[in-house]
Design a protein around this nucleic acid. Structure first.
Ligand SMILES: [Mn+2]
Ligand SMILES: [Mn+2]
Ligand SMILES: [Zn+2]
Ligand SMILES: [Zn+2]
Lengths: 140, 140
DNA sequence: TGACATAATGAAAATGATTCCCGATAAGAC
DNA sequence: GTCTTATCGGGAATCATTTTCATTATGTCA
């Protein structure tokens, strides 16, 4: 049998654009769209293309550095995971400004797996997002 | 002061197209996209336009007759709520074929509200979806 | 410190789901 | 049957995201 090539870390080159996108995300604790990040970067004088913004956001997601939430209107929003976020977590998100708080719910995790198992589902994962208005936005 | 007009049930006319869309959804216990429903209806000889399919699917959602799940690729999928589904519920969905099972988790509901309250969030709601492979799809 | 291989970039075009527009059609009331 | 207007539906318009591909820049190694 052919040897399975060892899963190799894709070599990524360090570029200004990649750093700029990460900085833009790091500057806010809110979920932001690619279009939004792009506009912000261009407004601040960064030399970067829209395709590149999409590219890096997806890379962050693939590498587990960022989480993505798909809004009802179809737009995807991204946010860097907190320092201690190598672990599985979910978010409490402000519907108005996008501000997000990372949350954990061990009980929910076990519940989800149990329910799936009871119905014979395998290869299970789940999405849990709580939406609301943050204190700031509620006062408007 | 002006009298607030009583919230009036919008009068909806019974049309062939509306019935056709509902039948198409009722025929399957899976989440299906508007494009999919449209293709199915046209293939079966139904005389209906794409706009109309979108229109009725949205009406079902507004009336609480159907639930919608936004797939990661941006496509929205719809499914009629079960008979006993006047109550709040979530879904266990097959990533491959879209088959869905309605599920309830009282503990999750209270947990979500508690977490939101702890962070001062108001006007709270949430999304909870469990994805996996149904027994049928797992055997492939 | 140069080449070199190729990963990364970005402007423009393509894609694809969803929405909008508006003249034509048909359901429901009298 | 006639009238009012909700509903239709084909096509154009939107708009986020993806793709294309010639150009640029990064990492490597002599
Ligand atoms: Mn979880
Ligand atoms: Mn719930
Ligand atoms: Zn807010
Ligand atoms: Zn399945």
């Amino acid at each position: 049998m052919a040897l399975m090539a060892p899963t190799q870390q894709v070599k990524r080159r360090a570029t200004n654009q990649g750093a700029a996108v990460k900085e833009a995300l790091a500057a806010e604790d809110t979920f932001r769209s690619a279009q939004d990040v792009y506009a912000t970067l261009r407004a601040s004088g960064e030399k970067i293309g829209l395709s590149t913004v999409y590219r890096h956001l997806q890379i962050f997601v693939d590498d587990g550095l960022a989480d993505v939430i798909h809004k009802p209107d179809g737009e995807s929003t991204y946010r860097l995971c907190g320092d201690a976020s190598t672990t599985h977590h979910h978010h409490l998100v402000c519907r108005s400004c996008g501000k997000a708080v990372e949350i954990e719910g061990p009980a929910v995790e076990t519940w989800a797996d149990k329910v799936a198992a009871q119905h014979g589902f395998s290869d299970v994962n789940h999405t849990v997002e709580i939406f609301g208005l943050c204190t700031t936005c509620a006062a408007s």
